[in-house]
């Protein structure tokens, strides 16, 4: 049996490592927190409005505990703004004796924004933050688009990542930021990231002033003290 063959040394090694990490955090006086959120879409334009939808928000977590939240919808239609199918959002996080982590995922399929101006077969937004005695890091690994087309031009063929904060003009409309990433924290005791896979900013044609926005696929995670 597997447990009969497990060596005690292999069991004690991670226990010793965990004790060391715990001591490191304790020495730093680290009280920890985690947070996470994921949502499918948000619309705020002159012609349409939709609060953050298909939203999962990580509940408050006490020390040495964990939790998660999830939301899903078969479809989301906001007339004059967007339509999408198969939306799924979840976020989870935990605080342990040796560290903390939070991770959030938002996904959507069959996306159509502003009557075909932007389409995608699928997108996934992934945000991950973790903290240990060696530091705190966040990333958006796994965030991709499938068959993304912007203003008639293919951006991805099949499933592929787009460089963070790629901005494309939408003549007469405004612009779109793809894989928009906003990071926070000091990288030592705090870290966080928000990933908006599609962020359309509507602008006044004459003044360039912002008149509205549409977000599809947003994931946020953070850990801190």
């Amino acid at each position: 049996m597997r447990y009969m063959t497990t060596q005690w040394t292999s069991r004690l090694a991670p226990l010793g490592l965990a004790a060391g990490l715990t001591a490191g955090l304790a020495a730093a006086g680290a009280a920890q927190s985690v947070s996470g959120q994921a949502y499918g879409a948000y619309v705020n334009t002159a012609l349409a409005s939709q609060p953050q939808s298909v939203v999962a928000v990580l509940p408050a977590i006490a020390a040495t505990d964990g939790d998660m939240a999830a939301a899903d919808a078969d479809a989301l239609n906001v007339p004059n703004a967007l339509s999408s199918d198969f939306l799924n959002s979840f976020t989870s996080g935990g605080i342990g004796t040796a560290g903390a982590s939070a991770q959030s995922i938002a996904s959507a399929a069959d996306i159509n924004i502003l009557s075909g101006l932007i389409t995608a077969k699928q997108l996934i937004a992934a945000a991950t933050s973790s903290r240990s005695a060696t530091g705190a890091t966040s990333n958006a690994n796994g965030s991709t688009f499938e068959d993304l087309v912007v203003a008639g031009s293919p951006v991805t063929v099949g499933d592929a990542a787009v460089a963070p904060n790629t901005q494309l003009a939408l003549p007469g409309v405004g612009y779109v930021v793809l894989n928009e990433q906003t990071v926070s924290g000091d990288g030592v005791s705090t870290t966080g990231i928000t990933v908006n896979m599609i962020h359309v900013v509507l602008q006044d044609a004459l003044t360039g002033a912002k008149t509205g926005e549409i977000v599809v696929g947003s994931a946020t995670s953070s850990v801190g003290s």
């Binding site: 998660m68 976020t91 995922i105 996934i124």
Partner: peptide
């Protein structure tokens, strides 16, 4: 344990029958 993320099976050298993007939490 807590977790969440994405995998893209099949992994190398494994005959998966559930292939393509999978996300989880």
């Amino acid at each position: 344990f807590t977790g969440g993320g994405r995998i893209d099976p099949p992994p190398p050298d494994y005959a998966s029958t559930m292939v393509g993007k999978v996300t989880f939490g």
